[in-house]
Computed example of a mutant assay.
Amino acid sequence: MKDVVLKVDHVGMQFNLSAEKVDDLKEFIIKKLKRQITYKEFWALKDVSFELKKGERLGILGFNGAGKSTLLKVIAGVLKATEGSVTTKGKVVPLLELGAGFDKQYTGKENIFLYGAMLGYTKEFITRKYEEILEFSELGDFINVPVKNYSSGMKARLGFSIATIVEPEILILDEVLSVGDAKFRKKSEKRIKDMFDKGVTVLFVSHSLEQVKRLCDRAIILEHGHIIANGTVEEVSAIYEEKLNK
């Protein structure tokens, strides 16, 4: 029996939302000091539980606001769950907001080392892998240009190239295969598939049902923070297609 590498156990994530409209920061501070701000509870996730075994690939489906990205951030450790627990085995690499950690004033080259350090890679490791990262990103001489001059596609390509230079036990993907032009998307998908072939466990969020069906073997549907379907990708995709056509 394959090892369980991810266990999500009755996870809930609560946010406190302001119950009233505040027009600017000054008004907010004054009202907060006077204790005139009231909050209402919003549960982005509630009682979410599932397990993944080594090599399984889980597609996470759901409409906007269902809690998909929040779930990935809790699993990645970006957010701490309000209740429940997440247990992982091995290195987790989250590809959530590619390039979100870049310093716009630094060049692409400098950001390779900065972003790599944020992902837990050593300077020696990045130095060894630098040419490979540069080649995959297809940035050429732009690698020596400050990132503030990059398009969003260029930043995403660089972020993807850095983050996927290692082979983690668990890979978390949030819409990242939609970055760049068609040629780069095809190349990105091939790199991810190569990881699949080596037994990486994957959590994958995409608005493309066809992409989920092509890349995943299991799927869940989130609705208002709850799992409403959990099974094979064929079974769950059929349920999701019905919901799309309503």
Rank of each mutant, 00 (worst) to 15 (best):
V233P: 03
V212R: 06
S208K: 11
E167T: 15
D174R: 06
A229K: 14
L215G: 07
F196T: 09
E223N: 12
A219P: 03
H226C: 01
E169G: 00
I227K: 00
G231I: 05
K193M: 12
I220S: 02
C216D: 12
V166W: 08
V236W: 14
I170R: 11
C216M: 14
S208M: 15
V202K: 12
K198Y: 03
T201V: 03
E234T: 15
D174E: 02
A182N: 01
G199P: 08
S208N: 14
I172H: 05
K213M: 15
K183M: 13
A182C: 00
V166I: 14
V205I: 12
K186S: 11
K187V: 09
V166L: 10
S208I: 14
C216K: 05
I239S: 03
V236L: 15
R218Q: 11
E234C: 14
H207C: 08
A163Q: 08
A219Q: 07
S237P: 00
E189D: 00
K187G: 10
H226S: 03
G225E: 07
F204A: 05
S237I: 01
E241L: 14
A182H: 00
S188T: 09
R191T: 02
I172G: 08
E210W: 04
L203I: 02
E169C: 00
K186G: 04
Q211H: 04
A238D: 15
E189L: 04
I228M: 04
L215V: 15
N230R: 07
E167K: 13
E169I: 06
V233A: 08
I220E: 08
E210M: 12
R191G: 04
I239C: 05
D217V: 11
R185Y: 10
L209N: 06
I228L: 04
I192M: 05
D194N: 07
S188P: 04
E235F: 01
F204P: 04
V233K: 00
V176Y: 09
V205W: 03
R191C: 06
L177T: 08
I220C: 12
T232Y: 00
E210F: 09
F204E: 06
S208G: 04
S178L: 11
P168Q: 07
D181N: 10
A182S: 09
K183C: 08
F196A: 11
D174C: 05
G231F: 06
D181C: 09
L222V: 07
G180W: 13
I192H: 03
L209S: 05
K190D: 11
L177R: 05
A219E: 06
L173W: 13
A163K: 09
F184E: 00
E241I: 12
S208R: 10
M195W: 14
S237E: 02
I228K: 08
V205H: 10
E235H: 01
A238P: 01
L203Q: 04
R191F: 06
F184M: 01
A182P: 00
I170H: 05
I220W: 03
K190P: 02
R191L: 05
V236F: 15
D174M: 08
K186A: 10
A238I: 12
